[in-house]
Design a binder for these strands. Structure first.
Lengths: 238, 238, 238, 238
DNA sequence: TATGAATGAGCCTTCATTCAT
DNA sequence: AATGAATGAAGGCTCATTCAT
């Protein structure tokens, strides 16, 4: 059960197990919280409800998080980790600008269909402490710049038609972020289908003619472990 | 001063004036409120702050609105009126589907750059009473359907390439709604420029080749008074 | 009733009355609070109890004070005002050092027998905000220095035997502050009797022989209005 | 190491050692707690902080004490033991009333400069359980009566001028207790110097003329072991 | 003996809303 | 129409204490 022989009295493993159990509970709190926050909105959701869904009591949450805001921020951070992960992977891949952009759109679209991904665009940074809000805003800026960067690259390498990277990025990001608002699990569209559709749709207008005739189907991030991200978002450990 | 002779003691005109003054104050409240709600978010903004900015006291607000939520809803309603207005105008115009879609995108983009317009996408319907929330959701559905309708029309009349109207509408609406989140008055981009750019950008991928070569610059709604809207959103009068 | 003719429609007086009523309520809160804080201690006393004793509800207190700590500080400030008042009066009086010291002891002893006076020594400055705590500590230092100053004056003018002003001040102030801890209203000793006794007792050891044979009985502050204080303690108005 | 041969397997000694170790830890807790309570005040100090300073965890404290209040009471008890000790010693000494009073003042002043001594006057009996509070109040009364008793003795044996023992005791005790509030370790005054000063200062006013001319310098309690106290304060064993 | 985790009780504070004037 | 005052409802957070391990 614990993955170690029963006769192994190593207190270290016990310690390890404890830490693991703790981390699992922490994550359970975050999963519950992000759902509730998305369902009801951060302000309407109470810590009591979060605790109730976890069958614990409110103060127990404070064993894992410093405050309600801390929980909010950590939810966001988990989503941001995903984004950082696939951006790092795409950055490390060998593709022209258009290819990277398509990969980005695809991965981003998929992420928007997850709870933590949606939290990236549905949570309000103004609910965060100044320090955390700063972190969030910096990350948002980073994502925007990644979009622009790929577009600029594409223009440079000829895979993307000359255009204004800033506006193009806004338009694409808007479409993608919107997914976080309308996507419902259990609907007729799977995240993957949405991602495929958007990857094509949002880039076809930018592609130079030849590049537009795409043969390959899956422009997702090249096979890389999600964990291959560069740097997770900075956050204070409790 | 009031547009009537000072010696006219007509109580009826006085009454009329009273009503007008009242309406002006109501609007002033809404303008202040929508700004504050956008600035700080609905929950962080307090009625005290709204009142303070108007140099009145909190209870005075209750002379014009039944509740904080009422104010929120009315803000939304003003934005929705704008949308209803230009949709009615476009509906009444003689254009092919692509033309209507472009006109819609243009007007919608412009609206997103206004306070009341932004409130359409930045306010959370869950902050409204069930009844008002229903109204809002119906209106949102209406807008979505308008997008799909124009696209369908365009496909039928050959101005738009065959595609999935639902996904196309989502993509376009997402880009547009996103404007409400990033547009800042005083930035380098004017609402009109944004609207022009988006009208072109978001439809070029859909246009059939010939239709894509657009000559005319301004595809905005044919000269119609904004107030020519058909039906203002249903709402309870106080 | 209002001290003005009934036919006087002056809204200003109404305003004045309002303000007076408000101030009276504020004071009532402070009187209730200081009693409760002395009875039970600041931490054990809840705002609910304060409100209950006033037959109002807890949030009503927030119309008059910003926080529980604010109430605590204002209680202290009222006591400090008394002290500032009689110190100013004694400072302005024509007496030798011993006379001033006796007057100070007498007035201080009397003050210690009042609620607001006792709050000066029974409230804990660490319960105050840093800013308010600073004010309190400065005031405490001021009182100490007044004791030392009178003693030094007395030594200079020959009315007090040469001694260490610092230790003498500590000894005297300690005896006086202690009153705030043991004095109970309704006991066998009246504040005035205590004040007389301490004024004599705490100074006889210091007096030079001739000055020790005091004839006059009442060494209290020369007839001055209590309100003739110089500067009330600085505090933020709500 | 433990004062017994290493090859002695006597479980009883082990038991004895355990008890000793336990007592040492208990005392360490009390020393840490009394400091923290004095530093921050009983209510602001948390058991977590106490535990942290001891490099243990909060629940570990419950191995030695039943509750936070229990710790508070035991701190007080240690201080009271000191007082009981020197009072017993003085009681057993051969001196006139004035001598005893001076000895008492001296020892009490010294005690006030210790942490446990200061706790006697800086801790609030209302933070204790009714039962413990009763014990404390009885002890306080006992100290007061000791002061009065020595004064009365002194009057009887002619070493002290006729006066009101009650008020004299209040005045003296107040000065002494105040030491607990202003004395800071590391200041310019040593506890011994303070004790000397106060022993002289607080009694010179009471001494009959001849007795006032004191020759001996150190009026402290006749050489007796501190532990020679009669009875430690009654308290419930865990 | 010591710990991580959990809990129950309680309190301050905020704010939309109402009411008497 | 407007205000000062008051209220009810609610939520976040703290902390002493307990319990299983």
């Amino acid at each position: 059960m614990d993955g170690r022989p029963a006769n192994d009295p190593s207190p270290w493993m016990t310690f390890e197990n404890r830490r693991r159990a703790r981390d699992e509970k922490r994550e359970a709190v975050l999963r519950t919280a992000v759902q509730l926050f998305l369902e009801q909105g951060y302000h309407r959701a109470t810590l009591n409800e979060v605790a109730e869904r976890l069958n614990i009591t409110k103060p127990a949450l404070y064993n894992y998080f410093r405050s309600k805001e801390d929980i909010l921020f950590e939810c966001w951070a988990l989503g941001q980790e995903q984004v950082d992960g696939f951006i790092a992977a795409i950055d490390g891949s060998r593709q022209n600008g258009l290819g990277k952009l398509r990969a980005l759109v695809h991965s981003y679209a998929e992420t928007m269909a997850t709870d933590f991904g949606a939290s990236l665009v549905r949570f309000d940074p103004r609910d965060l402490s100044p320090s955390n809000a700063k972190t969030v805003r910096a990350a948002k800026r980073g994502i925007d710049q990644t979009f622009r960067r790929y577009i600029t690259e594409g223009i440079a390498d000829g895979s993307i038609k000359p255009c204004d990277p800033k506006m193009a990025a806004f338009a694409i990001a808007g479409s993608l972020n919107w997914i976080g608002h309308w996507y419902q699990r259990g609907g007729p569209l799977t995240p993957d289908a949405i991602a495929d559709d958007f990857a094509e749709r949002l880039t076809e207008g930018l592609a130079t003619t030849t590049a537009g005739k795409r043969a390959a189907k899956k422009p997702s991030a090249p096979k890389t472990k999600k964990s291959a991200a560069k740097a997770p978002p900075q956050r204070k450990k409790k």
